[in-house]
Nucleic acid binder design. Structure first.
Length: 863
RNA sequence: GCGGGCAUGGCGGAACUGGUAGACGCGCCAGACUCAAAAUCUGGUGUCCUUGGACGUGGGGGUUCGAUUCCCUCUGCCCGCACCA
């Protein structure tokens, strides 16, 4: 039985150090400070009311960075807040009759308390809560400034409408064409919506990705693709009526392949195109076709299986280059209104979709590009007879003035010609669309706009901000409670004083998270969202950490907001996040009973490979992201109570690289816990050694360990800088093993041992802060480790005087030689050839060649 | 369909710019301590045959004195986008 001094009491120690840090304000930003700044931020949580393992991982990763940077001498800002608007609060209101605000604020209190035992180095004095008017009033003002600057506008647009919930759904809330909650078919509806003009910055947002060199390539690529820049041309096709006469209008089409214009055999427009709507006016069959297209699901499955369908409008358009040639205008279900001009020209020979469409509706296929080096006539004949489009590079044929030009040159020439004919221009299109921010929801920031019959759309005057949410709302009927509220929306017009109505939509909740990182710089400023001086001092965030699920939306919105805020004079900055890290998910095995029901990990009994539940066999499924629905969650609270924060932190950091998924296992957390106890036991031995400096002359054993201590400081520092926390932990464990094996009875043994334990405490501090403080304290230090500088290493001690290298024969390892580091090539060769194993292999014959890379390898090429 | 990533022992994963593959941990095996168990400690642990070797980083091929690392190709899994003209 271990004596009380030997047993590490994590519960007592962890809470003691947490109190000490709090009492000393250890994690408050130093103001003023001569140190360089470092801003560490993890994505702020939605207050669901319960901390989960994903949170623990996210905030632990950030905490390691924050503590390490602090030790390295930075003035660190590491704040925390709450992303507090959102749908779950309304669902809670619906299910339990509790007001969303009450529910949210209760959850925040619960979660704030749950954060405490994790021992995070957070500056709680900067806490912000996005659902409070003190926060959202600033974004109302910001929105009005965007409006003035032309960066916000209102327009009628098509939305996913849930007929049961009476609200707009985001694309990601539509699953297989049905509302994610109601399960009913989603309709396409036209609604007036507010938009933010993110497309204004499309080019800049795209170009600047290149400069985000501390972002994951994956995220940069996703943003690149999301913005989706493509170069092409706008082409005007003069429109002819059903009687064949010019109607004095043109159909505008966007294409990336103006070089294939001579292969055009039809034009197609979206069902939502104005011309389609007009054409349907006196054509009931066409109207029905359009309705069918609009009903067509937006779901991935629906699109995948959707057959290409078209409807001939009877209109024709005049080809821009070929006098007298016309092509028919179809309405096609695959043409998107939201991209380009909502109309295309079809060149079946060189576009897969057009080919499919042409074959279905028996439209001509004309080859106008042939691969270099192939016989154009034969190639064209084959292509025009087949069903496969040719989309690669080649040379223009059958194309009048373009003939003989390569695709790129032909594109340029075609555009020049279009421009000279005033029938088109070269242009750039983006896939990126403007950001629709209106939501028919209660629990969000009210959009500060008033609609007046006389004055139109009137911004709420500054002195009337914030527009706050009414408290007396009910959720017993579907739809937006703000819309139903008896008085809230009825106001006087600020301009003319007549009766007017408020906007009852609220902002998309991505609005709040698009600028909170700036609010943290001056979180309590009342009259402005943040001070420009503070924001310019702290921003950009030096290290941002969060899940990949926000790789596009949140990160892109924030980049846009930073530009928009700069355009409105709030600050002068483009990029909010200089460094970005995306952490992997926390996963766990899944368990199912015979009837298919998911079982909680805690409820099953494992016996080796098998598992059972109340005596019944259990199917063990693959490891998946922890989720309530699969019941494979592990409650952080239980882990903290059983093993403490340090063990939980250490396990999460050591088991897999932070950007990969982590599989939570009981054995893993046990292992971390065992290591901490072992380190504590080794430290209690060090305490018995009197303090003193390491003597200059040491025995071989202590010398080797001393070198390892220095090497470990160097390696761990490097690992922490590069987010290789798992390998940093491995290095620290290696050093711990070396210290445990060290013979302390020889000259310098004790001194090196004590120094080694102190160093391990320092190195492990960002990972397991409580135990390391306890060890540091027990070793007699009066300072606390949290406020102690990171250890330094002596470069002269990093490497040994000798080096051991492998000796290969024909690339196969036959032995090793240990030799002075300074030895020349001849010495390496002599030593290598002297090896018995080498002699045996060579069998008396001289080597054909000997390759020597000093310090690395000797490879003997035998004949 | 398009784009991207990954593949290493029973498991999670190391291996920096091509240079001793399997660090560190988990698990397992054996032993010590114990009446016993837990905890702890010591040793072993890629595979195959006999010391000594042979083989081995998803499969096949290539470059190289030397390849987990670079190139080609195939297979499998994961992620993003999804008729973007």
């Amino acid at each position: 039985m271990a004596s009380p001094e030997e047993r590490y009491n994590f519960l007592e120690a962890e809470s003691k150090w947490q109190k000490t840090w709090a009492a000393k304000d250890s994690f408050k930003v130093e103001e003023p400070s001569s140190k360089p700044k470092y801003y560490v931020l993890e994505m702020f949580p939605y207050p669901s009311g319960r901390l989960h393992m994903g949170h623990v991982r996210n905030y632990t990763l950030g905490d390691v960075v924050a503590r390490y940077k602090k030790a390295k001498g930075f003035n660190v800002m590491h704040p925390m807040g709450w992303d507090a608007f959102g749908l779950p609060a309304e669902n809670a209101a619906l299910e339990r009759g509790v007001h969303p605000g009450t529910w949210t604020r209760q959850n925040i209190a619960i979660m704030r308390a749950q954060f405490q035992p994790l021992g995070l180095s957070l500056d709680w004095s900067r806490e912000i809560t996005s659902c409070e008017p003190a926060y959202y009033k600033h974004e109302q003002k910001m929105f009005l400034d965007f409006l003035k600057a032309g960066l916000a506008y209102r327009k009628e647009s098509w939305v996913n409408w849930d007929p049961v919930e009476h609200t707009v759904l985001a694309n990601e809330q539509v699953i297989d064409g049905k509302g994610w909650r109601s399960g009913f078919d989603v309709e396409q509806r036209k609604l007036n919506q507010w938009f933010l003009k993110i497309t204004h910055f499309a080019e800049d947002l795209l170009q600047a990705i290149e400069g985000l060199d501390r972002w994951p390539d994956k995220v940069r690529l996703m943003q690149h693709n999301w913005i989706g820049r493509s170069e092409g041309a706008r082409v005007m096709w003069p429109l002819l009526g059903r009687d064949g006469k010019d109607v004095g209008q043109s159909l505008e089409v966007f294409t990336t392949r103006p070089d294939t214009l001579f292969g055009a055999s039809f034009c197609a427009i979206s069902a939502q195109h104005p011309l389609a709507v007009k054409a349907a006016e006196n054509d009931p069959a066409l109207a029905e076709f359009i309705a069918e297209c609009n009903r067509g699901g937006t779901s991935t499955a629906a699109i995948e299986t959707a057959e290409k369908k078209g409807y001939d409008t009877g209109f024709k358009v005049q080809h821009p280059f070929i006098a007298g040639k016309t092509v028919p205008v179809y309405i096609a279900n695959f043409v998107l209104m939201a991209y380009g001009s909502g109309a295309i020209f079809g060149c079946p020979a060189h576009d897969e979709r057009d080919m499919e469409f042409a074959r279905k509706y028996r439209l001509p296929v004309r080859c106008v590009v042939a691969p270099v080096g192939e016989d154009p006539v034969a190639f064209a004949a084959k292509l025009e007879a087949g069903d496969v489009a040719y989309t690669d590079d080649g040379v223009a044929i059958n194309s009048d003035f373009l003939n003989g030009l390569k695709v790129d040159a032909a594109k340029r020439t075609a555009i020049e010609k279009l421009e000279s004919l005033k029938l088109g221009t070269g242009t750039v299109q983006y896939r990126l669309r403007d950001w629709g921010v209106s939501r028919q929801r209660y629990w969000g920031c009210p959009i500060p706009i008033i609609y007046c019959e006389t004055c139109g759309t009137v911004p709420v005057p500054d002195q009337d901000l914030p527009v706050t949410l009414p408290e007396d709302v009910t959720f017993d009927t579907p739809g937006n409670p703000l819309e139903r509220h008896p008085t809230w929306k009825h106001v006087k017009c600020p301009t003319c004083g007549k009766d007017a109505k408020r906007e009852t939509d609220t902002f998309d909740t991505f609005f709040e998270s698009s600028w909170y990182f700036a609010r943290f710089c001056s979180p309590h400023l009342a009259d402005r969202p943040f001070s420009e001086i503070a924001a310019m001092k702290w921003l950009p965030v030096d290290q941002y950490i969060g899940g990949v699920e926000h790789a596009v939306l949140h990160l892109l919105y924030s980049r846009f907001f930073t530009r928009a805020m700069s355009a409105c004079g709030y600050l002068n900055l483009k990029e909010p996040f200089a460094g970005m890290f995306t952490q992997g998910m926390v996963c766990h095995e899944t368990y199912r009973a015979a009837d298919g029901a998911w079982l909680e990990p805690g409820s099953i009994t494992r016996t080796g490979e098998a598992a059972s539940y109340n005596g019944q066999p259990v199917t063990i499924g693959r490891s998946e992201k922890m989720s309530k629905s699969k019941k494979n969650t592990v409650d952080p609270q239980r882990i903290l109570d059983t093993y403490g924060a340090d063990a939980a932190r250490l396990f999460m950091l050591s088991d897999s690289p932070p950007d990969r998924d982590l599989e939570w296992t009981d054995a893993g957390i046990e292992g971390a816990w065992r290591y901490l106890n072992r380190l504590w036991r080794l430290a209690t031995v060090a305490v018995t050694i009197p303090r003193g400096t390491v003597p200059a002359t040491l025995d071989a054993g202590p010398t080797a360990v001393l070198r390892q201590i220095h090497r470990t400081i160097s390696a761990v520092s490097d690992d922490l800088e590069k987010f290789r926390f798992n390998s940093g932990v491995a290095r620290i464990r290696e050093l711990t093993n070396a210290l445990a094996d060290l013979d302390r009875t020889v000259v310098g043994g004790n001194a090196v041992y004590r120094f080694g334990i102190e160093t391990v405490a320092q190195l492990v501090n960002p990972l397991a802060p409580h135990l390391s403080e306890e060890i540091w304290h027990t070793l007699g230090n009066s300072s606390i480790l949290t406020e102690t500088a990171w250890p330094t290493f002596d470069p002269a001690l990093l490497e040994d005087d000798t080096v051991t290298v492998g000796v290969q024969i024909n690339g196969k390892l036959r032995g090793t030689i240990t030799i002075a580091k300074t030895a020349d090539k001849d010495a390496f060769e002599t030593a290598a050839l002297a090896l018995p194993a080498v002699q045996k292999q060579l069998d008396g014959k001289p080597p054909k060649k000997v390759i020597i890379v000093p310090g690395k390898i000797v490879n003997i090429v035998a004949a």
